[in-house]
Nucleic acid binder design. Sequence first.
DNA 1: GTCTATAGCTTGATAGAC
DNA 2: GTCTATCAAGCTATAGAC
Lengths: 200, 200
Amino acid sequence: MEDTRERIIDATAALFTQRGYAASGLKQISGASTATIGSLYHFFPGGKAELAAETLTRSGQAYQELVEAVIDAAPDVVTGVRDCFDGAAETLRASGYADACPIATVALEVASADEALRQVTEQIFASWLRSITDRLVNGGVPESRAPELATVLLAALEGGFLLSRVAKDAAAMDVLGATVVDLVRHAVDGSGFVPERRRT
Amino acid sequence: MEDTRERIIDATAALFTQRGYAASGLKQISGASTATIGSLYHFFPGGKAELAAETLTRSGQAYQELVEAVIDAAPDVVTGVRDCFDGAAETLRASGYADACPIATVALEVASADEALRQVTEQIFASWLRSITDRLVNGGVPESRAPELATVLLAALEGGFLLSRVAKDAAAMDVLGATVVDLVRHAVDGSGFVPERRRT
DNA sequence: GTCTATAGCTTGATAGAC
DNA sequence: GTCTATCAAGCTATAGAC
């Protein structure tokens, strides 16, 4: 196989999501990706730190594209936001509350302990917030209100992942989705914007 | 000193808050608490797992009591909720974005990897939600609405800790506080309840 | 590019003197 | 209760054959 590098990153992303950075050993990653430790250092000479930075960046991009696809596929932004939370809740239930945000656990671990990796997570969240803000504005949320609403949306999603994983119950995610949907709807209505379509 | 056990727990709590479970070694804890590894196993024969369970439980209780004190000291529940978020933002700024939730990082690490510790974190969050719900009801939020609003409040606080620590900027916590305060105010107003006092 | 072997260190945990 | 010595296992990282 020539996609060894991909397999390593995929295995690392899965372990980071479920156990975090410190608890994910290189031998474990090597085993899970069916790549030897030699291959691992061939593709990532910088070792664990380089592998982590690359994995976080890639996971962040993939997750952003997923959310963008969900929102852009909806007839209006209110529905799109609802679909995001519904999808997150469904993914949690289907995976036994293991498949959640690929960044959050590592981000909390490194925030005060590894400045280089902290900056990587900062860039990822900043990119997510820009993407969400753009879509809120496109959907009719006033530009003055969109950045704050994007922050609330992302914090609700992350808080929902935390509470739902801990309780092994996605009810929290459902409640948060309903709340954020209401906030978005109100922001759109208040602007006098008629939610219309940009699909196809 | 006879409070060796306390020092061990305090040092563990600080390390868990800033680095999480897996990255906090027993030798590091031993050093930070000026207790030898022998003392550590004397007080916690179950090793790291027992120390973690005890530390999380104690930190969870202390944090709950802190939030309760802040809310109960305010003239009304809307102000109390605002004080909570303001206090969280201030603590973040004052500590260089290191002092945040003592449970969240560990909770995400163990949610899918250590069932015993996951249950400990589940009990802590459940206790927090009961406490917040009680105070919302006392402050005039309808009983039918209070549990959901408590979930939103806690998720916003946790999401705010994550985004603020990652960005080394408490602006997210400020935005989330303002949003939750509005939600609580609306829930109180909508119930026809006049925010009145229970202090002194 | 892949694989094995291994260095050097740290981890969680135990034993036993004091 | 405290301390030190030590164990086996794990870790990250490197070297070198293939």
